[in-house]
C-alpha cells in the first residue's frame, strides 16, 4: 500500500497526526527547558526550573492569589474587548457599507492604528488615573481601530450581486446593512473578533506594567523586582493558557453563530 504524503499543499492529514505533531513540539520545548534549566548552564535567576514554576503555582494557587490576579486581568481584557467590539461591529459595518462614513473615519483610524499602544499609557494615566478604567482604555485602544478596519473590510467584500438580489426581492436601502451585509459578513466578523481577542491579551501586560495594583502583569513586575523569575514564568503561562481558552471559545462560537460558513 502506498503511503500518502503529509506534504500535499492544503491536503488533509489524519487526526492522530494533527494531535501528535502538536504534542511533539510541546514535549520537545518542555524537555529542552527541563534539561537546560536543570543542567545549571543558565543561572536560576534567569531561567527557573519547571519544578520551581510548579512550586510557585502551588503556592500562589493555594492561597488564592493566582486566581485573584487572573480574574483581575481577565476582567480588564474582557471589559476592554467587549466595549471595543460593541462599538466596532456596527461602526465597522457602516464604514464598509457607506463610502461617506469610510471617507470620514479612515484617515483618523489609519493614523491611530499604527501608533504603539504603549505610547498612550502615560497619557491615559494623566487623564484617567491609575484605576481599572486606565487599563481598560489601553485594551480598548489596542483593539478598537484594528477591529474597525477589519470589520469594514468584511463588509466591503460582500458580493454586490448578493445585495442586488436582495433589492430585487424587495429589500429597502435602509434594511440592507442589517438584512444582508451583517449576516454575509458575520463569519468574517467572528474571525476578526477571535484574532483581536488574542491581541487584547497581548496588550494586557502593557496595561498592567505601570500603575496597577493587581493582575498578572502586576505580579510579573513585582516578581521582577524580587528576582522571582518563576513567578514571571507562571504569569506568562497563565496568560498563554487564557489566550488559548478564549481562542477555542471563539472558534466554537463561530461554528455556532455561522454554521453555514467554513
Amino acid at each position: 500500500m502506498k503511503k500518502k504524503s503529509l506534504f500535499i499543499p492544503f491536503g488533509d492529514i489524519p487526526g492522530r497526526i494533527v494531535i501528535g505533531a502538536g504534542v511533539t513540539v510541546w514535549v520537545a520545548l518542555l524537555a529542552a527547558w527541563v534539561l537546560v534549566s536543570n543542567a545549571g548552564v543558565v543561572p536560576k535567576m534567569f531561567l527557573p526550573t519547571p519544578q520551581a514554576v510548579i512550586g510557585a503555582a502551588q503556592e500562589l494557587g493555594g492561597d488564592g492569589r493566582l486566581l485573584t490576579h487572573t480574574l483581575a486581568s481577565a476582567q480588564v481584557v474582557l471589559l476592554g474587548f467587549f466595549i471595543s467590539s460593541a462599538i466596532a461591529v456596527p461602526v465597522g459595518l457602516w464604514m464598509g457599507t457607506y463610502k461617506v462614513v469610510q471617507a470620514a473615519l479612515e484617515p483618523v483610524v489609519n493614523f491611530v492604528r499604527y501608533l504603539p499602544v504603549s505610547s498612550f499609557v502615560p497619557l491615559f494615566i494623566l487623564w484617567i488615573g491609575i484605576g481599572i478604567e486606565q487599563r481598560v482604555a489601553v485594551i480598548f485602544f489596542g483593539t478598537f481601530f484594528q477591529q474597525l478596519v477589519m470589520i469594514a473590510d468584511s463588509a466591503r467584500s460582500v458580493h454586490p450581486d448578493l445585495i442586488n438580489a436582495s433589492y430585487t426581492l424587495g429589500t429597502k436601502r435602509s434594511e440592507v446593512v442589517w438584512h444582508v451585509i451583517f449576516p454575509a459578513a458575520l463569519p468574517g466578523i467572528m474571525d476578526t473578533l477571535r484574532v483581536t481577542m488574542g491581541w487584547a491579551w497581548t496588550y494586557l501586560v502593557v496595561a498592567e506594567l505601570v500603575a496597577a495594583s493587581s493582575g498578572l502583569g502586576y505580579i510579573s513586575m513585582k516578581a521582577m523586582r524580587g528576582f522571582q523569575v518563576e513567578i514571571i514564568f507562571l504569569a506568562i503561562a497563565t496568560i498563554g493558557l487564557l489566550g488559548l481558552i478564549t481562542d477555542q471559545a471563539f472558534r466554537h462560537l463561530r461554528t455556532r453563530v455561522a454554521p453555514w460558513a467554513r
Partner: peptide
C-alpha cells in the same frame, strides 16, 4: 415587481 436571477450564485448563504 421586477425579479431577477443572476448569472453568479446569489443565494443568501446564511
Amino acid at each position: 415587481d421586477r425579479g431577477m436571477v443572476f448569472q453568479s450564485y446569489t443565494l443568501f448563504p446564511w
